[in-house]
Simulated assay, not measured.
Amino acid sequence: MTKQARNSFFKSLSIVVVCAIILYVMATQTFIGKGFGRVISDAFIIFSNSPSGEVSQVNWLKFKSFVISIAIFAIVIVGGLTYWISQYLLKKDRRYIVGLLQQSLEPEDLPTLDLEYREIQNELEKIKLTNQKNQDALMQETQRTKDLVTFLAHDLRTPLASVIGYLNLLIDSPEISTETRAKYLGIALDKAYRLEYLIDEFFDITRFNFQNIVLDYSKFDLTLLLQQLNEEFYPILKKKDQMLEMKISDSCLVDGDSTKLVRVFNNLLKNASAYGFEGSKIHLDVSSNKNQLEITITNEGQTIPPEKLEVIFDKFYRLDSARSSNSGGAGLGLAIAKEIIEAHHGEISAMSDKGCTTFILHFPQERE
């Protein structure tokens, strides 16, 4: 019951009390009350004569029946009146709430209501804003998914056409030299690897949309893991004449899922290389403070605008939709990295300023 309903109820109760006082005054101070008293006296008091004079006697059985009847009648009247008042007030509240609900589903702003309904209005405003935000996020992700399907369909067709074309060329031209044949086979193999990568992207979409990440914790040396990753990235970095500089202690033991953390570093380093300038350096620094690891990966490239930094970890978001088929992915790398780090009870963020973009990771060194 709202404040207004409670006020109406107390007003009604006050009216009943005032009516009772008026009836009491009428019964004791007016001729109506005196007349009613004589009726009661005639009905319940029996007068008889005795040697000592006239004697009065109350017929208690009859009086008790009368009092019980009056009490039952009063209870019925009061109960019925209370039920009617409560239903009236509840119906009034329901009309207000139904009106608020209808208006909360409309795009227009809610009207300013009485103070007692302001709390309901505020809650409905919060629900409305939350629903609108969820709808906007769903529409954006749906649109990105549609764009992704378009990109990947095109990207799948391009390497597949190359594979078919070079294989047909080898079949139709048996007289070509061994060197040329090896070159064509190499190109077809590269395109086949590209197809495999895109198919893996499709599997990632399903896996990271419908499954929670389950971690397989183990103790491993982060320094050794990053050194191995540096060696694996050497051919990728060499294509753009880039260099990876690491700053880490000789040994850094970490309790976590090494396989999934490798994927995080792989995605971040691949991203740093793809968006870094040719001939630039990529810096990877690791520090530890009170069981908290801080890892930063910095590359030299175009400054990312703040509005793009806000959505850079969203699924299916690609910083540059115009990237070529050979370098563009599904836009899941950073989203997957964020989910893995958060599964380790950590957090990941990004900052970009003056031609340098830095990804910052924080997560516990020991399992919590």
Rank of each mutant, 00 (worst) to 15 (best):
S177P: 02
I164L: 14
F202Q: 08
S162W: 03
K92W: 02
F202C: 08
L89T: 10
L115F: 11
L160P: 01
L129G: 04
N209F: 04
E141S: 11
Q132C: 01
L115M: 00
L110F: 11
N209K: 05
P111T: 07
L189Q: 10
I199Y: 01
Q121E: 15
E175D: 04
D172W: 07
Y117L: 14
K91V: 02
E179Y: 05
I199V: 14
L81I: 09
A137H: 03
H154I: 13
E123A: 08
R194L: 13
Y197C: 02
L100T: 07
I187Q: 14
D147K: 05
L90T: 07
T178A: 03
R95E: 10
L156F: 13
S177V: 02
Y197M: 06
L105K: 03
V98R: 06
R144D: 09
E201T: 09
G99Y: 05
K183W: 02
T145C: 04
R194H: 12
K191P: 04
Q132F: 08
K146T: 09
S173G: 03
D147C: 02
T142S: 13
E196W: 07
L105V: 07
N209G: 09
L189S: 08
F151S: 03
D109M: 12
I97W: 05
L167C: 01
I171P: 06
H154R: 15
L152D: 05
Y83V: 13
Y193G: 09
L90G: 03
L167E: 13
K183R: 07
R94H: 12
L100P: 01
L156T: 05
I176D: 04
D114Q: 00
L160N: 08
N131P: 00
N131F: 15
D204N: 13
L101W: 04
Q140E: 15
D114T: 01
L198Q: 04
F202M: 12
Y96N: 00
P159G: 13
L156V: 09
H154G: 11
K126S: 12
K91L: 07
A192P: 00
L90V: 03
L185F: 02
T130A: 11
N209S: 15
K92I: 02
